[in-house]
Design a protein around this nucleic acid. Structure first.
Length: 845
RNA sequence: GCGGAAGUGGUGGAACGGCAGACACGCAAGCCUUAGGAGCUUGUGCCCGCGAGGGCGUGAGGGUUCGAGUCCCUCCUUCCGCACCA
């Protein structure tokens, strides 16, 4: 037994040393102009500089780093940049609270987070870093805005918008969440306001958003986007108002319907309370009720609309509309279940075939007329529920000339006939709204327009950019936009007439910043344009993007909008930003809730890193769960990964040593005898492991990847101190182990690799510049196996035998077994199922 | 209500339709010891049994199959998205 002990692995010493060395050598710098190797653009969602990196950042970024290192070992030129999403409200709140300029607060946090990010030992391309709150970056937001204006992709409009009373700003539709309609950032319930605001015309690409060809995106994300866009095909039908004592009639009332086949069943019409024609159509004796209802509806959208099951409400206007297919006059109502923002803000109500209309009709005693029925069922006007079932053989009833047609055919014919008369047409509507980008906040990209008393709204010229945020904000404790009271900022000159003008004080949604940052990484300091077109063509789209699923209809949809808009402007060549997307699961707080400072359940990785080292933390995060799965945080189990790395250290540096322990004879240990056959078996295991680990890296199955490496290390551990230790096969196994582990645990593998090179008298070379090893398939193939034997599907025996024996021979061997005979009980099998090399099953019954 | 994901030991989690529970934590017993937040060995799904062994087991219930955690049907539970979208 050897007395000499190798020193233990000291992460605190090894990790910073290598991090410094890699920096110094520029090991991970990427030459974007290198055309000799395939490019691999690896992107992970850039962090908001809140001040502290938490364990969730590690759990997305370190496995992503492992992917990059793995690709690098395959010879790819990997670009893996990082930056900071540096505009946003927390900085303003800090400014109000602590009286510091939001820039100072943000830059200090960034500095702190850079240090924390570096402790991961990741291959970030720091030379490409972008910080969105710098004029160097946000001037291009302004530039895009001007280009979008020219292209009709940006516009200003009055609209009922969502206002967050706490954050004191409007929000995009995507940023209002849940049944309670709360602010995505702060959870406060939003209220409706009529305001004139800036929009990006996302709806221009609604149909294109629905096409995902060539995108390897998770199905749930695509579904969420598809549902969000909410494309709906149907017809627009023009009703006209009937004349009466109070108005001349003849106004067009357009409705959108997905069921033009039910047009004969329309027994009333409903307008949204805010519909512009309400005023004009209301009969004098109805005015009081109508005004009251409209007021009530307005108020309702401001208080919680928790109960979606609430009773239908509405009032009649005292006017009629004429159904274009049969000339029938039907009463016009207003009701808050019809939304102004969807379709045309008006519906034809067909209570027989729509649940909501049915409920409304029942509530107010309006007629119900069935116009679609299964063949031979006629019609029923006393239905107790709306008939909305779609049977293949349903036909139109009570529908004039169309009676007897199948429902789809009826829909086609009715629409076609209306179209001929100019009273309707096929139509498509979307749930998707244009993106409201104005924010009444100071810490964001100033919108580059001025309001001139003579010229109105005037966009600045490109030469006037950037519009820079002032250095001397004064934030009031009451909140509000500090830019508004900043005279030097507000007082501007009209670029058109040269006279005094008021500068726009709204800034852009920070999602504008994050909609194009990966293009900027390619040339972060380029000052004659936002994107280097040549590099964009070489590197884009992004090969692999990683981040949370919470951005399904926010960042990920906005980014697709930018791709299409910029491609249409000729700035880039690709219409999709991210070829392959992966959503890692979230690490929740120990309480199972989303980690947040306000809940006080944020986990700080720094403690763990100083106790166990970055490699252990990286491995633990990969090992604890499948990457895509959410899980509450618990550090239980991290010691297992720490022990694992210690064993890797031990088998590499001290193969001949032996722990004193309850060991038996060497020869009987761990199934290995230390002789030539054991030696072969070890190498075979190494190659089988390599095969599986390779597959696991490819599929991002990091948890099983780590498990396989632990297994291999445990096998090495069993052979340690035997004659096999230190043999060429042993050494080869160690070499493979370190290479396989290198992407996941970069520091310890670099240290061990370098020590081995020293011992071998070879010049130093980073393990992270080695090639991924090739599997020796012949070696990896199993030679012997244990064949499971079933009788009637129940496991009865396991029989060791050579691989590849003919079936007859296998059966003979197996049936000779005592246990098998006992289980067969002397019966001759009716049938024998043999799955080559997997299993044999005798059916006796 | 609609759409999606998921239910496996004490715990985190493994399992091309073919040995359920890999790997790890925890726990137990033992070894070693410079007595540590260290290392090593063995065991550990549940029940019966001293043991050999047997029975039962993947949310519930049906089905397909020689064989089902895995496929199909009907439920239950949890989480996520949408919120009267005509």
């Amino acid at each position: 037994m050897r007395e000499v002990r190798v020193e233990r692995y000291d992460a605190a010493e090894v990790e910073p040393r290598w991090q410094a060395r890699w920096d110094e050598l520029g090991t991970y710098r990427t030459d974007l102009t290198d055309t000799s190797r395939p490019t691999f653009y690896l992107l992970t969602m850039y962090p908001y500089p809140s001040g502290d990196l938490h364990i969730g950042h590690w759990s997305i970024k370190t496995p992503t780093d492992a992917i990059g290192r793995y690709r690098r070992m395959h010879g790819d030129n990997v670009f893996f940049p990082i930056g900071f999403d540096a505009f946003g409200l927390p900085a303003e709140n800090a400014a109000i609270k602590a009286g510091v300029h939001p820039r100072e607060w943000t830059l200090a946090n960034i500095e702190r987070m850079r240090r924390q990010l570096r402790s991961m030992g990741a291959t970030f391309n720091w030379e490409a870093e972008v910080v969105t709150a710098t004029p160097e970056y946000y001037r291009w937001n302004q530039w895009f805005f001007l280009k979008f204006l020219e292209a009709g992709l940006a516009y200003r409009a009055m609209a009922p918008v969502d206002w967050c009373p706490k954050d004191q700003t409007v929000l995009a539709r995507e940023q209002v969440v849940g049944p309670d309609r709360v602010c995505e950032r702060c959870g406060t319930q939003v209220v409706k306001r009529d305001l004139e605001q800036w929009f990006f015309r996302t709806t221009r690409y609604a149909d294109e958003f629905l096409r995902y060809e060539g995108l390897q995106w998770p199905e749930p994300i695509r579904l969420m986007q598809t549902n969000w866009i909410g494309r709906s095909e149907g017809s627009e039908v023009v009703f006209r108002t009937a004349p009466d004592d109070h108005q001349p009639g003849g106004d067009e009332l357009r409705v959108f319907t997905t069921r033009p086949d039910t047009l004969f069943g329309a027994t009333f019409m409903v307008l949204a309370p805010e519909h512009p024609l309400v005023e004009r159509l209301t009969a004098p004796d109805r005015r009081g009720d109508v005004e009251r209802y409209r007021h009530e509806a307005r108020r309702k959208s401001e208080i919680d609309r928790l109960s979606t099951e609430r009773e239908k409400t509405g009032v009649p206007l005292g006017a009629d509309a004429i159904n274009p297919v049969n000339g029938e006059a039907i009463p016009i109502w207003i009701a808050d279940y019809v939304l102004l923002s969807y379709g045309t803000g008006a519906i034809m109500a067909v209570p027989a075939h729509d649940e909501r209309d049915f409920a409304f009709a029942t509530q107010f005693g309006l007629p119900i007329r069935q116009v679609v029925a299964p063949v031979g069922h006629g019609g029923d006007d006393e239905a107790d529920a709306a008939y909305i079932a779609h049977t293949p053989d349903e036909e139109l009833v009570n529908s004039g000339d169309y009676t007897g047609l199948s429902a789809p055919e009826g829909a086609r014919r009715i629409t076609a006939d209306l179209e001929r008369e100019g009273r309707g047409k096929s139509a498509v509507t979307y749930r998707l709204r244009d993106w409201l980008i104005s924010r009444q906040r100071a810490w964001g990209t100033p919108i580059p327009v001025v309001y001139c008393p003579t010229d109105g709204i005037v966009p600045l010229g490109e030469g006037d950019l950037p519009v820079v945020l002032p250095d001397d904000f004064e934030f009031k404790p009451t909140g509000g936009n500090a830019l508004e009271s900043h005279a030097a900022f507000v007082n501007a000159t009209c670029p058109r007439c040269g006279g005094p003008a008021r500068r726009e004080t709204d800034t852009m949604d920070t999602f504008v910043d994050s909609s194009w940052y990966w293009w900027r990484y390619l040339s972060p300091h380029k000052d004659d344009g936002p994107v280097d077109r040549e590099l964009e063509e070489r590197w884009c789209p992004v090969d692999q993007y990683t981040g949370g699923a919470e951005h399904a209809v926010l960042h990920l949809l906005y980014s697709r909008f930018f791709s299409k808009a910029l491609a249409d402007l000729g700035l880039i060549h690709e219409r999709e930003p991210f070829k392959r997307l992966f959503n890692q699961g979230q690490i929740l707080g120990e309480d199972g809730e989303r980690m947040s400072k306000s809940r006080g359940n944020v986990q700080d990785p720094d403690d763990l890193v100083s106790r166990y080292g970055a490699d252990t933390v990286r491995l633990f995060l990969m090992f604890m769960k499948p990457w895509e799965q959410d899980a509450p945080w618990s550090s239980t189990g991290i010691t297992g990964l720490s022990r694992f790395l210690n064993r890797v250290w031990t088998v590499t540096l001290d193969p001949h040593g032996q722990e004193s322990g309850g060991r038996e004879e060497d020869a009987s240990r761990g199934g290995g005898d230390g002789g030539p056959s054991g030696s072969q078996a070890l190498r075979a295991l190494a190659h089988r492991t390599l095969k599986r680990v390779t597959d696991d890296y490819e599929g991002f199955h990091f948890n099983t990847m780590v498990a396989r490496l632990i297994e291999l290390t445990n096998a090495l551990m069993r052979y340690r101190g035997t004659a096999l230790a230190g043999s060429p096969d042993w050494e080869e196994t160690i070499r493979l182990l370190l290479l396989m582990l290198a992407p996941a645990a970069p520091h310890i593998t670099e240290e061990l690799w370098s020590r081995r090179l020293t011992v071998a008298g070879e010049p130093w070379r980073s393990i992270h510049q080695e090639a991924w090893p090739a599997v020796d398939e012949a070696l990896a193939a199993e030679e012997t196996m244990e064949l499971p034997v079933q009788v009637n599907g129940k496991l009865r025996d396991r029989v060791p035998m050579a691989v590849g024996l003919p079936r007859a021979e296998v059966e003979e061997i197996v049936r000779a077994r005592e246990k098998v005979q006992a289980a067969l009980g002397g019966q001759e099998p009716l049938r024998t199922v043999y799955v080559d090399g997997r299993l044999i099953n005798f059916v006796v019954r």
